[in-house]
């Protein structure tokens, strides 16, 4: 073929190389960021808690502690606060809270519960009705901070409804027999969750509420009208 003044801009190979370079560069950047992120979101352990180190994804043993979701002055948004608040929205890692009657779960026990709960969440497909960390389906409430939902608290209706005295027992009871405790016409079905799986799931939910989600969902449970407790259907 006779090539007159040919410009690189119309050269196929030039664009092919550009595509390869751009893709390679973007991929490398992504891989580098992934390494950094992996470091930051790897799960902590009890030692971190003992040393008062706040992890984005804390140890499974947070189930031994009280959890809140408060405004953090430095971060400029709400963060999970574990074991008490220092007044500025930082975790004190002091105040314990009983979880199914105990607050001394060892690392191993806590890990096992979380493992069971995570497996159950996948085996029962929670994510195809609910959102977890905001991802999933939009048929039922977001579970990111479900542990902190006022409906489960002392002033909420769920403990009385399920006849239990603690949040975790109420949740476990609900998860096993959701059809028995309907609060809306749109009910959660019975998924054959066993008592053990229910405990694992509640541990999973409590742990998820301690993940630092950069302030999502905003104002969870803080807005008065939002906690006018479950009216009926």
């Amino acid at each position: 073929m006779s090539r007159k003044k040919v410009s690189v801009w119309s050269d196929n190979r030039f664009w092919q190389r550009s595509a390869i370079w751009v893709t390679g560069f973007a991929s490398l950047l992504l891989i580098w960021l992934t390494f950094d992120t992996m470091g930051q979101i790897s799960m902590g352990n009890q030692k971190d808690i003992d040393n008062h180190i706040t992890k984005r994804v804390p140890s499974a043993t947070v189930i031994n502690y009280e959890v809140e979701y408060n405004m953090n002055q430095n971060r400029g948004h709400e963060v999970p606060v574990i074991g008490g608040d220092d007044g500025k929205g930082n975790s004190l890692f002091k105040v314990k809270e009983k979880f199914f009657g105990r607050d001394d779960y060892t690392q191993k026990e806590a890990n096992a519960l979380l493992h069971l709960g995570k497996l159950a969440s996948q085996a029962k497909n929670c994510m195809d009705c609910h959102t977890l960390l905001g991802n999933g389906a939009y048929y039922a409430p977001d579970l990111t901070k479900a542990w902190l939902d006022p409906a489960w608290g002392k002033n909420g209706p769920m403990q009385a409804m399920t006849g239990k005295n603690t949040k975790e027992e109420a949740m476990a009871e609900f998860l096993q027999h959701p059809g028995k405790y309907p609060t809306h016409a749109r009910m959660m079905p019975n998924l054959g969750i066993t008592p053990k799986e229910a405990i694992g799931l509640v541990a999973f939910l409590k742990h998820m509420s301690t993940i630092d989600t950069n302030g999502f969902p905003r104002g969870f449970g803080k807005i008065k009208e939002g906690v006018v407790y479950a009216k009926s259907k």
Binding site: M71, Q73, R75, G76, H77, G215, R218
Partner: peptide, 9 residues
């Protein structure tokens, strides 16, 4: 009030 890094809309 507090400073929000993602201001309220």
């Amino acid at each position: 009030g507090p400073l929000y890094v993602r201001p309220i809309i």
